[in-house]
Simulated assay, not measured.
Amino acid sequence: MNVKVLLFCLLPAAPVLAQGFAGLGTDAEGFAVPERGRALQFPRDHGAHPDYRIEWWYLTATLQDADGRDYGAQWTLFRSALAPGESEGWDSPQVWMGHAGLTTPDTHFSAERFARGGIGQADVAAAPFAARIDDWHMTSTAPDGADAYSALQIAARDADFGYDLRLEANGPLVLHGQDGYSVKSAAGQASYYYSQPFYSVTGTLDLPGGPVAVTGQGWLDREWSSQPLASDQTGWDWFSIVLEDGHRLMGFQLRGRQTFTAGTWITPQGQATALPDGALSFTPQGTAQVAGRDIPVRWQIDWPEQGLSLQTAPVNPQSWMDLTVSYWEGPIRVTGSHDGRGYLEMTGY
């Protein structure tokens, strides 16, 4: 779903933070809102959409070293608009935030960057594609004529960790919901949402003990909206899973007065089936004490119509992003009717 951890913490009106998680249920007056039936266009939609209030470029990777030890990496750039539209210099209403995470079985690292738009510190260009904040970057390395997201290089660095990863896609972009129009509540709040879930990844992690060469799989989510949540929705549980038989599953539940679920079942060839509210069920199976609170780190995911019954376990239960807006995000192992690996994000706990 990747309605991700959002930037409304940066907005000046503190009372809005009570309206949906991180203010994502606040009224979208003055901003553009997603419309059903609008066709996504590439490479244009790889870039920024300043008339919408919130947007993100979100990459997660499940990785292993030569000994089979598990790792996870996260690279995210968020854009939040104080007003619709764009202008130059300090008059720009765009605010940017970057998150980076790196998970080992023993340790979880997280870091954060902030920037104003219009002054050269952070931006996103659609063609040639490049996203950056300070020295963190996600840059297309695709050949001429190929989709910009078919090959990427990403890097981030903080005092205690860093990574430099190269990603090559072996499948197509996937549109979620109805041709990229992704509904998030019974009341009809929605976002535009698509993914590139077919990356093979190679690169290096920089850890306190030294560099570690890794390989694995990656998943990029792209989403933008102006009011993606209902005002009573207090958080979500979101999964991206790559199964050993080549199928992929994106699924989420939004918690509020009523739970709302949605998902996408993706074949190895990239054909997508949208899963409507109620098709998937998500049941906590075990908790851990994380940052002074009980977090449901083990889950059961069921899709009875498909005969899918998955159990997930974290690589590191302490995968807490202790940032301006805090949340749990880390790599998971998957067993049950299918085996696989994936990523889990949980907010609002």
Rank of each mutant, 00 (worst) to 15 (best):
257 R>M: 06
257 R>N: 09
257 R>C: 06
258 Q>H: 14
258 Q>A: 14
259 T>L: 10
261 T>M: 03
264 T>F: 00
264 T>G: 00
264 T>L: 01
265 W>R: 09
266 I>G: 08
267 T>N: 08
268 P>M: 05
268 P>F: 11
268 P>N: 06
270 G>H: 09
270 G>A: 10
270 G>N: 10
272 A>P: 07
274 A>C: 06
274 A>L: 04
274 A>Y: 14
277 D>M: 12
277 D>C: 15
278 G>Q: 13
279 A>N: 03
279 A>H: 12
280 L>D: 00
280 L>Q: 02
281 S>G: 12
281 S>Q: 15
281 S>Y: 04
282 F>I: 03
284 P>G: 08
284 P>D: 09
284 P>Y: 05
285 Q>L: 02
285 Q>H: 02
285 Q>F: 02
285 Q>G: 14
286 G>R: 05
286 G>S: 04
286 G>D: 01
287 T>D: 08
287 T>V: 14
288 A>H: 07
288 A>Q: 09
289 Q>N: 13
289 Q>M: 13
289 Q>G: 10
289 Q>D: 08
290 V>R: 07
291 A>M: 04
292 G>A: 01
292 G>N: 02
293 R>D: 07
294 D>P: 13
295 I>H: 05
295 I>Y: 10
295 I>E: 13
297 V>G: 14
297 V>F: 08
297 V>R: 07
297 V>C: 12
298 R>S: 13
298 R>Y: 10
298 R>W: 12
298 R>P: 06
298 R>T: 12
299 W>D: 02
302 D>H: 13
304 P>V: 00
304 P>L: 03
304 P>E: 00
305 E>C: 06
306 Q>E: 09
307 G>P: 08
307 G>Y: 11
308 L>F: 06
308 L>I: 15
308 L>M: 08
308 L>P: 13
309 S>E: 03
310 L>I: 12
310 L>R: 12
310 L>T: 04
310 L>W: 03
314 P>I: 00
314 P>F: 00
314 P>M: 02
314 P>W: 12
316 N>D: 10
318 Q>Y: 11
318 Q>V: 00
318 Q>W: 11
318 Q>E: 06
319 S>P: 04
320 W>F: 06
321 M>T: 03
321 M>A: 10
323 L>V: 08
325 V>N: 10
326 S>D: 10
326 S>E: 01
